[in-house]
Design a protein around this nucleic acid. Structure first.
Length: 588
RNA sequence: GGGCCCGUAGCUCAGCUGGAUAGAGCAGCAGCCUUCUAAGCUGCUGGUCACAGGUUCGAAUCCUGUCGGGCUCGCCA
């Protein structure tokens, strides 16, 4: 139940009634009209901007228009007070019963409170992580992984049909380098002295086990073959090994994908099954691909610029700054060409809404990809690219780097092992994706208010603890949501309690807004705020024993408060589930 | 030089797609607490929302320009 939607609908009805009565002109555009929570409780519960937004179009003064609307809204039995304020705001104060009803609904819905109605079409594809299969995941990958996962969960909770996808970059030159690196480890496993890993190969010792597996399965059979002979086999084995490792890392984070899509699979075995070739030819037929020359980059002096004719995609027709090459000088496809075919595949698989989660260093790639999606879907597909900024890893404020195991970066696994999955997930999402993130390894394991992970989980544990306490004090009390929902919720009259009930009422709206803007961090901030309000109320019970949730001498108020606590707990659990963090029963 | 992102309190950051007097936490200051689960609670101090214009009834939010920081710039991925 979303009271904001409910009242938007009622407002729309009021407006059309006024139109029918000839009091205001027909055909007003309602797009900018919103019903939103007030910031200041003195302004009531709901704020409506309709009079100000519509005044000009209606040819009326805002306040005159507001008076017409207020007169109608005041007749609503759920409205206690409707008044005009400031430049023409309509502020509604609702009957307390409205909120007790919302609370009751939330108690019964439990963790389903806030879930959006199924949206059906369009199906949404969220592509995230997509780390190259050339080594373990590092911390930066982890941010994209958590962000994408939380965004997908958020969209699913909001009612969308979501598919989580991983794009395996297994077709570029880097996987050949990987294969050569693995081959060296294979020779090493056969007992050969390989010395230092040459420059340009992957030095990480995570390839040792790939080499050992190859030695075990093939013995010395590969050693004396020519590279063109062993490379495909070794490459396949190495990619499989790397993907297994990456899946392990993802599993440690609790991140799942439904689809692992191989870049190499786009290239097929012959010309006919080659999706990249097909895509480009299709674009060529529509005159979106041509042979031409690019101007050199502006302002840069570059002696090694070589003017050359190449195969180009008309990205400029779709909003990009320059046309983009599809073939390398050696005749093979650019990464971009493969990516066009890949996004076309998403579209033909039924996803007209696509979201890609990338690292910030790919920012310069966004325009061309969006251009390509427009071209290849004939304007039917929509691509949103979410860029995740860098993560700075700190320990007690000091920046940490270097890891012997992996070469030059801290692996995600090391961080998860040190601070735990929940801390990693919550902190990665407790910031806007487009802002750099400081992650302090020391802080996130503190048991204090400074540590938001602890703070939110503790609030949930406290709710659970209250229920344990209640079961002891009132052993015969039925604590099921069905029974609690029947309690006299009108007994919840303290300002703090009402404030929290309003937050619970606002939860569905927050979910919708966060999903619409693809901003899962809002969910993390919301649960943090709710936790804060709840801790504060809990502490009020110190000075005012009558506010304690479990009151030995007052069975009725205890029932009402337990219903309330159940709703708080459910919303915390629901929000944490979206972020992918566990909601513990107790803190240990 | 072009493109994209960022600039909000001393510090770290929110700001609900343009709403009312810009909010938290930390730090600082003043009190309180030892509990239904201890790791805290309440209050105070603190801002020219980088700067200058513009659009609007209304701008931290949208547009233009300037300054500062980051990323990026035909064949890598």
């Amino acid at each position: 139940m979303n009271i904001f939607e409910t009242f938007s609908a009622r407002l729309a009805a009021v407006l059309s009634g006024l139109v029918e009565a000839g009091r205001i002109p027909a055909g007003l555009s309602l797009a900018r009209v919103v019903v939103e929570p007030t910031k200041d409780p003195a302004h009531g519960d709901l704020a409506i901007n309709a009079a100000m937004v519509l005044a000009k179009e209606a040819g009326m003064a805002p306040r005159a228009l507001a008076e017409l609307i207020v007169a109608e809204l005041a007749k609503d039995s759920d409205v206690l007070k409707a008044e005009i304020a400031g430049p023409g705001f309509i502020n509604l104060t609702l009957q307390p019963a409205v909120f007790t009803q919302v609370l009751k609904t939330a108690v019964l819905a439990g963790t389903e409170h806030g879930r959006g109605a199924p949206k059906g079409e369009p199906k949404v594809n969220v592509e995230y992580v997509s780390a190259n299969p050339t080594g373990p995941m590092h911390v930066g990958h982890g941010r994209g992984a958590v962000f994408g996962d939380a965004l997908a969960s958020l969209l699913a909770f909001a009612g969308h049909d979501v598919t989580r996808e991983y794009y395996i970059n297994d077709a570029g030159a880097q996987v050949d380098v990987l294969a050569r690196s693995a081959f060296l480890r294979y020779r090493e496993a056969l007992g050969e002295e390989i010395g230092a890993i040459p420059e340009g190969l992957y030095p990480g010792d995570y390839l040792v086990s790939v080499g050992e597996t190859l030695a075990r399965e093939h013995g010395p059979a590969l050693r004396d073959k020519a590279e063109w002979d062993w490379l495909p086999l070794v490459r396949g084995a190495a990619i499989d090994g790397m993907m297994a490792m990456i899946r392990d890392d993802l599993a440690a984070l609790g991140v799942v994908h439904q689809v692992f899509f191989s870049e190499r699979s786009l290239q097929g075995r012959d010309g006919n099954s080659n999706a990249v070739h097909q895509t480009i030819e299709e674009l060529r037929v529509r005159d979106l691909v041509y042979e031409g020359r690019l101007p050199p980059p502006k302002g840069q002096k570059d002696e090694d610029w070589e003017d050359r004719e190449q195969t180009l995609f008309r990205a400029t027709q779709f909003g990009d700054d320059v046309d983009r090459p599809l073939l390398k000088s050696d005749g093979s496809y650019t990464y971009f060409a493969n990516d066009i075919a890949y996004h076309r595949s998403k579209f033909t698989r039924g996803f007209s809404e696509m979201i890609d989660v990338w690292g910030a260093d790919h920012g310069g790639y966004v325009k061309r990809m969006r251009a390509a999606v427009k071209a290849v879907t004939d304007g039917q597909g929509e691509l949103d690219v979410k860029l995740c900024q860098l993560v700075r890893l700190l320990r007690n404020g000091e920046q940490v780097r270097m890891s012997k195991r992996s070469g030059d970066f801290v692996t995600l696994r090391e961080v998860i092992d040190e601070v735990g999955r929940d801390a990693v997930r919550f902190m990665m999402i407790f910031r806007k994706n487009d802002a750099t993130l400081d992650f302090d390894l020391a802080k996130v394991v503190e048991q204090s208010k400074d540590n938001p992970v602890f703070y939110v989980q503790y609030a949930h544990a406290r709710c659970a603890s209250i229920f344990r306490q209640a079961a002891e004090v009132f052993p015969d009390l039925d604590l099921s949501p069905q029974t609690l929902a029947q309690a006299d919720l009108g007994l919840l009259t303290d300002e703090s309690e009402i404030g929290i009930v309003k937050m619970i009422a606002a939860y569905p709206r927050m979910i919708d807004a966060a999903a619409a803007s693809h901003e899962p961090h809002r969910v993390a901030f919301f649960v943090h705020e709710l936790a804060s309000a709840f801790h504060s109320l809990w502490n009020k019970g110190k000075d005012s024993p009558q506010l304690r949730f479990v009151n030995q001498t007052d069975r009725k108020s205890t029932s009402a408060r337990l219903a309330f606590v159940h709703a708080v707990r459910s919303v915390l659990a629901s929000g944490l589930a979206v972020v992918g963090v566990t909601a513990p029963e107790e803190m240990r």
